[in-house]
Computed example of a mutant assay.
Amino acid sequence: MKKIALLILIFSVSYSISAQEIFYEYQLSSKYRLTTVDSNLLKKIELDSSLENEKATIFLIDTIGNKLKEFKVYPLQFKPKQGVSDVCEISQYEPKLVLKNINNIVKVQIVQCNGTCKYSIYYWLITNQNKWIELPMIEHDFGIEKEYKDYYFPYDVTNQIGVAKYKTIRAKAGETELITDVFQGHVRYLDWDGVTVSQQ
């Protein structure tokens, strides 16, 4: 299990590195974070293993503890470590977003592992009025040589959100083997009119 967690961490870092050259770069959020599974529930599961198949609720919260969004996870499968299940937003060093009336993008990645690891990735566009516009969730299983789709936010295309294909591969940096994420090509754009998202 430790080995799986390490691979997930490398994969998450590699994703950011591969994306930053072309698209808006993310940073770990200082405004929002995920809560963890209640420790009392984990203690109950130790005494009664049948409870591990019941989903628990975790939350996306702000710096003062306001619950903004909720998610259902399996208590023993959820991986809460930074770089695995985490919250990111557009880096403060990036130029102004080219999406009308949007001042930030929040990305929440939740990883649950049970043999294989499943990624559930949520995106919200944050308007200047602090309204959260959710994009359709992205889900995929972690696997070498597996392709999946994800969003990207280009500098040079106004009011459009890209959807692209990626592939997870093994790569070497000197003597070190890494799990990295390779851009495979553009799929389509979603249109943003300042209020709603629509598909082309």
Score class of each variant (00 low, 15 high):
V73K: 00
Q112A: 07
E145T: 07
G194Q: 06
P75Q: 06
P95R: 06
L9K: 01
T36C: 12
I8Q: 14
Q160T: 05
L76M: 06
T180M: 03
D193N: 10
M137Y: 10
I22H: 13
Y119R: 06
L135T: 08
L7R: 09
I110D: 04
E52N: 11
V84A: 09
V37H: 03
A19P: 09
N104I: 05
S29V: 02
D141S: 13
E134Y: 10
A19Y: 11
D193V: 07
Q27I: 10
F183Y: 15
V73P: 00
F78T: 03
T35V: 04
Y155S: 07
Y26R: 09
E52R: 15
H140R: 12
Q160H: 11
N130P: 08
S120G: 10
G194L: 12
K81C: 08
Y152N: 10
V106G: 02
G83S: 03
T168V: 08
L76A: 04
I138V: 15
T63L: 15
D86Q: 10
Y148F: 14
Y24M: 12
D191Y: 11
Y122V: 14
L68F: 05
E21I: 15
G65L: 05
E54R: 11
G143V: 04
T158G: 05
E134K: 10
C117F: 01
V98M: 11
W192T: 01
E46N: 15
Y155W: 14
N53A: 13
Y122F: 15
V37K: 00
L125G: 03
P136C: 05
A171L: 05
C113W: 03
K55D: 09
N159P: 05
K100S: 12
C88S: 14
K118C: 00
P154K: 07
C88V: 13
D48V: 06
V163G: 02
S85K: 01
T57V: 15
C117I: 04
F11W: 13
E52F: 13
T180P: 02
Y189D: 15
Y74G: 03
G194A: 08
E175Q: 14
F59E: 01
P80A: 05
I105C: 04
Q77T: 00
F23E: 07
L97P: 10
K167V: 12
K72I: 03
N130H: 11
S12A: 11
L42N: 15
G115L: 06
K55T: 14
S39I: 14
W124M: 08
K149C: 00
K79L: 09
